[in-house]
């Protein structure tokens, strides 16, 4: 018996959370693309990189998650991409924390108002959710097959 069958509503709720998180984040970054790229420009880690391309890749990945979560056949990949992206963001934040002399933020929208410590907790929480959903879905697929 998987988590989905035991706590169907909880799973749907968590799935919606991930879906809307990335949809919201993608929209706010697209609406303020200039601002988002400016934020990336200020990061020492992207010195010498074309930050517009990095910005487009991040937005593309963020929009891909709600799309993947929308179709039953690709939900597993959606959870995986969500986890990987959040892991990447968290690794970047930790690198910034440890190495950068200052901390610019370009997350956009309400998420931008979080402190860097809150950012880490926020990301870890959503990483946990994504991983939980991923394992649940993966297990369910294994049971069906």
């Amino acid at each position: 018996m998987t988590l989905r069958y035991k706590h169907g509503y909880l799973i749907t709720f968590l799935q919606c959370l991930v879906f809307f998180l990335f949809l919201y984040s993608g929209i706010t970054k697209t609406m303020g693309f200039g601002l988002f790229v400016n934020g990336l420009d200020k990061s020492l880690f992207f010195d010498d990189f074309d930050t517009r391309i990095i910005g487009m890749l991040v937005i593309g990945a963020e929009f891909a998650i709600p799309v993947l979560l929308f179709f039953e056949a690709t939900v597993l990949y959606g959870y995986l991409l969500s986890f990987v992206l959040l892991l990447l963001f968290t690794a970047y934040i930790l690198l910034m924390f440890l190495l950068s002399p200052y901390l610019p933020c370009s997350c956009g929208g309400l998420i931008e108002s979080l402190s860097w410590r809150q950012h880490v907790f926020f990301n870890v929480a959503f990483m946990g959710i994504s991983l939980l959903l991923f394992f649940d879905k993966n297990k369910k697929k294994a049971v069906i097959s």
């Binding site: 597993l76 995986l80 690794a91 394992f135 993966n138």
Partner: peptide, 17 residues
């Protein structure tokens, strides 16, 4: 089978990160 595939994908993602 699927579980194994999923774990490989997850591991690949972590390696890429």
């Amino acid at each position: 089978m699927k579980t194994k595939n999923g774990n490989v994908l997850l591991l690949t993602g972590i390696v890429i990160v």
